[in-house]
């Protein structure tokens, strides 16, 4: 196998304030191959967006303490100086954000914002960059693209704005695309269109992609592999079909049980009892143990080590190898 595009080793992110320290990301390790789509699945506060932002060092430098190692295309991201970082951002790696409403500068036109990115990384004349921007808007299937170029963000609908955002992210041919819940803020019908577009562009351009979402349906639509995060740790990882068919971690199983999947209408959805732990005071053991029906004494002493019941599958649960004989 070729060398991975992204290699994250033992990534830790803490947010330090005078009053407290929040352990947002705790020992996250994963890798992404070129052209592969990894979905990071998790609920709010599970550390998925923080992990994504850490990859581009977009976290506020004065509050966030990052340790571990992040390598993108062989470059040590945490060791880059300002100039190297600026080349990496938008060039090698680019990001799509959740809220297209607030993620674009309201007082510059869509065209200006794309042109600016292109000229920053590729140089060239304004006219050439504008021609390229037009191509990009057509690539993301924005109707009457030439006029849209001179529109301000507020003049576009949410779906078009997100397409413009995608065009901007693709403008400099990134090898890695980071998508932070790009469809969450959109209407359901627009959501699926944007998702299909992203999947197609990703495949056509061969970009490695990390896609953060809390939506199992979205994840199953776009992912090659899924990593499930809980309280700042990846608690399960594996190919999308395997995870959906056979979740190993009790939390992943709980997530699947809590979706609508053809139950009778009068039945309540099986929600996971309790709520996620306070990131400022994580329990010493498995962070999910307080909500887990199968928790035993071992779960409370130390976070479970990763277990690998099958090639490409990982879960951090003490019961995994014992309970899944088909993988043993």
């Amino acid at each position: 196998m070729s060398s991975p595009l992204v290699e994250v080793q033992d990534l830790n992110v803490r947010f330090v304030t005078r009053e407290s320290t929040a352990h947002a990301v705790n020992g996250v390790t994963f890798s992404v191959q070129p052209g592969e789509v990894l979905c990071i699945l998790g609920e709010s506060g599970s550390g998925k967006s923080v992990t994504l932002r850490a990859l581009m060092r977009l976290l506020p430098a004065n509050k966030a303490r990052i340790s571990g190692s992040i390598k993108v295309d062989g470059q040590d991201v945490l060791a880059l100086d300002a100039a190297g970082l600026s080349r990496l951002r938008g060039g090698l790696v680019s990001m799509i954000f959740q809220e297209p409403m607030t993620a674009l500068d309201p007082v510059y036109t869509i065209g200006d914002q794309i042109v600016e990115t292109i000229r920053r990384h590729k140089g060239g004349t304004k006219a050439a960059a504008r021609a390229r921007a037009l191509e990009l808007l057509e690539l993301v299937k924005i109707p009457s693209a030439a006029q849209r170029l001179d529109n301000y963000p507020h003049e576009l609908s949410g779906g078009l704005r997100q397409r413009a955002m995608i065009a901007m992210a693709l403008s400099c041919g990134p090898r890695l695309l980071l998508a932070d819940e790009p469809t969450t803020a959109l209407d359901a019908t627009v959501q699926i269109q944007v998702l299909i577009l992203l999947r197609k562009l990703q495949a056509d351009l061969g970009m490695g992609t990390i896609f953060v979402t809390h939506d199992l349906g979205v994840a199953s639509e776009i992912a090659d592999r899924i990593a499930v995060m809980y309280a700042g740790r990846i608690i399960e990882e594996g190919p999308v079909a395997d995870i959906l068919a056979n979740p190993l971690h009790p939390y992943t199983r709980g997530l699947m049980a809590s979706t609508v999947h053809g139950q009778s209408r009068d039945r309540d959805i099986d929600a996971i009892p309790g709520s996620p732990p306070d990131l400022r005071q994580l329990p010493p053991g498995c962070a999910f143990a307080p909500r887990c029906a199968q928790a035993s004494g071992d779960c409370l002493t130390a976070p479970p080590e990763p277990r690998y019941p099958a090639p490409g599958r990982m879960a951090r649960c003490v019961q995994v190898s014992a309970k899944t004989p088909e993988f043993a």
Binding site: R53, M56, L58, A82, L85, S86, R87, L88, R89, G90, G91, S94, M95, F97, E99, T102, A103, L104, D105, P106, Y108, E116, T117, R120, H121, M165, M168
Partner: peptide
């Protein structure tokens, strides 16, 4: 503190360009 400033940084703009925005 607005979100789009993170986008500007994520595009790789220099700090001067970000401040101009």
């Amino acid at each position: 503190n607005q979100d789009f400033v993170i986008t500007l940084r994520a595009k790789g703009l220099s700090e001067t360009a970000v401040i101009r925005h």
